[in-house]
Design a protein around this nucleic acid. Structure first.
Length: 446
RNA sequence: GCGGGUGUAGUACAACGGUUAGUAUGCAAGUUUUCCAAACUUGAGAUGGGAGUUCGAUUCUCCCCACCCGCACCA
């Protein structure tokens, strides 16, 4: 689906991004020193900052800035009944049957044994059905038997549903309200692909927004708007984000409406996040399996009911890839090609770099260190950089998306311009003089 | 999981069945440099892992691992 209507194709390739991520300390192959482990990735100092900034932005936007949202942080390991109730145990254990001749695999429930293999035409040459489970299984405690089985959660959502009653009992929020959670999830993907796009261990940010069933349509529409606001906040170009209305036959059976928000990645147009109306499927299952009531009793005394949910589900790694894709820019400065990350300032791993114009002039270095300490206290993510010459530092900071470079030069030390520094803008490469006293305020505002 | 491809310093590339495996860039130390990857000196740094063939393997063969491209999968 990415072949047609590809709008504003980015010149950036996946290799550019992977290479930059590694070269500059964003993302590395997991367990690389031992030859790697498929589907796992490690975050370096800068990637970690970027990831945290994205997750922080999300939390501010969807939890801190709202009155109707509650956060939880549920355990990754959960009682196996959670996954029986949710349907994951059943739907994740599809038996697979493999053609002995060509190795083509089929789901047993969809295979007609009387027919020849669709791929190679071999007849009556199917292997034994074997279970394939997308959930990563483990055992709790010293015994290794049926009852000790547990799974690394394949989604964070169930940790929200299982805490629905707790949140209602303690806070009794007015409906509608939402519960939000960020955290790791695990899937034993058959083939992890496309850098961090599909991996076996990943980070999710999910919301279950509880509503009265009569209001689902308007609530859904509001979430569509919210999702677009989120994409704007990530700095994604509007023409790179697409709504895909998922047709009924492709939706989960309990979902009455699902929109996949897709992004134009270097690997094509792929899902960035999902928005689904899940009805009362999840709470209903919990009620059925646990025997505990999941009903919500409105404060006005009207009839109690099991709330329905709208579920916006965000993948952190997919957001990171979209942000990097959008931010990666190439232009020319003084005839030299330059590549840089045009990140929104609130996402940049480093907010400000501080340099002495020349590193062999102690008076400059001393003053610069002073300014560095000052800014570090005020802004936090401030980097000291005195490597090479000033142009080199600018390029290096450009490439990791640092929005501002502060340079202490001889004008800082004396004359009318005493105690002013140069502030250089990443995107325009223009610079202006700013009083040291105003620096922190001006940079954190910008 | 299937088919195809790839695997050499941090990155991007070279080379070769045979002495110290090169180049660029990056990195580290130093000299220098008054604003956009200047220059010089020095230094560290690699044949993914394991078997086999061979007098000798980074090179050839096999197995494993990882990544890339297709297919399948993606509740």
């Amino acid at each position: 689906m990415s072949d047609e209507n590809q709008t504003s194709p980015k010149p950036v390739s996946m290799d550019d991004i992977v290479s930059l991520c590694k070269r500059r300390g964003f993302i590395f192959q997991g367990s690389e020193i031992y030859g790697g482990l498929s589907g796992t990735w490690d975050y370096g100092p800068l990637g970690l900052e970027l990831k945290r900034n994205i997750m922080k932005l999300w939390w501010e936007m969807f939890v801190d800035q709202r009155d109707d949202m509650y956060g939880v942080d549920a355990a990754i390991l959960m009682n196996q009944k959670v996954w029986q109730a949710s349907g994951h145990v059943d739907t994740f254990t599809d038996p697979l049957v493999v053609c002995n001749k060509c190795g083509q695999s089929y789901r047993e429930d969809q295979l007609d044994y009387t027919k020849a293999c669709e791929k190679c035409g071999a007849k009556d040459n199917y292997g034994q059905a074997r279970q394939f489970n997308m959930m990563l299984k483990t055992n709790i405690g010293p015994v290794d038997n049926e009852s000790s089985i547990s799974y690394l959660r394949p989604e964070t959502a169930q940790g929200i549903f299982t805490n629905f009653k707790n949140v209602v009992d303690v806070f009794y929020p007015d409906l509608p309200f939402g519960i939000a959670q960020q955290g790791k999830a695990f899937r034993n993907e058959i083939s992890p692909r496309d850098f961090v796009f599909r991996s076996r261990e990943f980070e999710q940010m999910e919301i279950e927004y509880f509503i009265h069933p009569d209001t689902w349509e308007e609530s859904f529409e509001r979430w569509v708007e919210q999702v677009h606001k989120w994409c704007d906040a990530l700095g994604l170009p509007k023409d790179s984000v697409h709504e895909l209305e998922v047709p009924e036959e492709d939706r989960a059976h309990y979902s009455k409406r699902t929109i996949d928000f897709e992004f134009d990645y270097p690997i094509g147009r792929k899902e960035l996040l999902g928005l689904a109306y899940r009805t009362d499927f999840d709470l209903g299952n919990i009620q059925r399996v646990s025997g505990k009531s999941m009903e919500y009793r409105p404060k006005d005394g009207s009839t109690a009911f099991v709330p329905h949910v709208i579920e916006p589900s965000f993948g952190v790694e997919r957001a990171i890839m979209a942000v990097l894709t959008s931010a990666y820019t190439e232009d020319e400065v003084n005839g030299e090609k330059r590549s840089y990350l045009k990140l929104p300032a609130h996402l940049s791993p480093v907010k400000v770099a501080v340099s002495p114009l020349l590193k062999n002039k102690p008076e400059l270095v001393e003053k610069a260190k002073e300014v560095h300490q000052l800014l570090k206290k005020e802004i936090g993510a401030v980097m000291w950089d005195d490597n090479g010459n000033i142009g080199k530092r600018y390029r290096r900071q450009d490439e990791i998306g640092t929005p501002y470079c502060v340079v202490i030069d001889f004008e800082t030390l004396e004359g009318d311009t005493k105690d002013t520094v140069t502030v250089r803008n990443r995107d325009t490469t223009k610079q202006q003089r700013v009083k040291i006293a105003d620096l922190a305020a001006q940079l954190s505002k910008a």
